[in-house]
Amino acid sequence: MGDVVQVAVPWVLLAAVLLGVAALGVTALDGALAARAAGRSASVGAQHPLVETARLLRQRRRTTVAADTLLRHVAVGGFVVAPLLMVAVVPLGEWVLADASVGVVWFNAVDVLVWVLVWLAGWGPNAAWSLTGGYRFLAQAMAYELPLMFALTAPAVAAGSLRVGDVAAAQPGLPHVVWMPVAFVVYCTGVLAFSVRGPLSPAGGAAISGGVLAELSGVDRLLVLAGRAGLLVAGAAFAVPLFLGGGSGPLLPGWLWVLVKTALLAAALVVVRRRLPDVRPERFLALGWTVLLPAALLQLLVVSVVVVVRS
């Protein structure tokens, strides 16, 4: 472990490929689980993302009357960029794309960018269900964002640094998840909420005919679907240096451990996501402010006391 090395910009291509493969993987897992739950063949379900990609690439883009095309393009493009911005500060073993001194805050800023992207994706088509989806996301964001922020703070306080590499290096032997499990659970809740899928993120739910996704078609839809899978993966990847000890582990090299941990956490999130009940935004607000936020604050208090006592 120890210091991380900042690599040249072109390596972002490798990050994009890894992110894309992982996004395809979680979508395939999701498809397989959905197919099995519906009594169909899991392997056919696992092929669903590839089939859907082929279909969407050939589909002609559908437009709506008086749509704000510019803002829709911003949202669709942003969905591809945001996960990359998140993983840019995650060290892959000893290499990192951007060794930012405030990497933890950077991640937080990008997850707030998701608010903007989802709302713009909802606003862009000038259609009722899309707009409803965009508003729902913001309502939900009020519930998960503040607990998420404090959950991000806990490992940073323990490490005494906002640099992601330092946080990863600060947990030799004992990963943060062991002694700050509440922060980890709150963080994972936030990841499930900002990845625009599943019960904790009803912005694109079936109850509102697909919400922000309702009017998206063709390549636009493909990019947003890929982007939200990428957000889940990026959230899982960021948890690795923050809570799961970064690249530390026996036998395998650091970079491989980071990939393995990311894949396992992302898969676990996909499985858990299918088990959770639908939560309406206003009920999620009560949960967020009366359970998640106090829990995250108490966790932060415990971590701070431990840090003070230890020093």
Binding site: V105, N108, A109, V112, W115, V116, W119, L138, A141, E145
Partner: peptide, 10 residues
Amino acid sequence: VLMMLMEMAV
């Protein structure tokens, strides 16, 4: 950047 994105979204 963080605060302003959040603030403008709201």
